[in-house]
């Protein structure tokens, strides 16, 4: 291994910060999902990186769990976006004010 643990962790921090930025600034529902994906991926990266340097296998196992859960989360999130789009004909979450269909 030529790369130290710190390099991976720094990349993951950058990804996390960008994800939080996207989540807080963007009002587009799909782009907010992008932000969530980035945060999850930064967490995965951390998990695998630490698992490599400790070393054990449980980090990778957890990362796999996390990926699977993320897939489920994206499926539900996108279904919500589609439903909201069908109701409001828009994907701006500022427009999703009324909870009534």
């Amino acid at each position: 291994m030529t790369n130290g643990l710190i390099d991976f962790v720094l990349v993951s921090v950058a990804l996390l910060a960008i994800g939080i930025y996207g989540l807080s600034v963007k009002r587009n529902a799909i782009r907010m999902l992008f932000g969530v994906e980035m945060i999850i991926n930064s967490a995965n990266l951390n998990l695998v990186a630490f698992a490599r340097f400790i070393p054990n296998s449980q980090g990778q196992t957890l990362a796999l769990f996390s990926i699977a859960i993320a897939a489920a989360e994206v499926a539900v999130g996108l279904a919500l976006v589609i439903v909201a789009y069908r109701m409001y004909k828009n994907i701006d979450i500022e427009d999703f004010r009324s909870l009534k269909g």
Binding site: V11, N44, V48, A51, A63, I67
Partner: peptide, 23 residues
């Protein structure tokens, strides 16, 4: 790619097939 660098090819391939292939 980072996962591959971290010698975790299984996670990398899983990431590719789940994220790129379906998400």
């Amino acid at each position: 790619g980072f996962f591959l660098l971290l010698d975790a090819p299984f996670v990398a391939m899983f990431q590719l097939s789940v994220y790129v292939g379906s998400i």
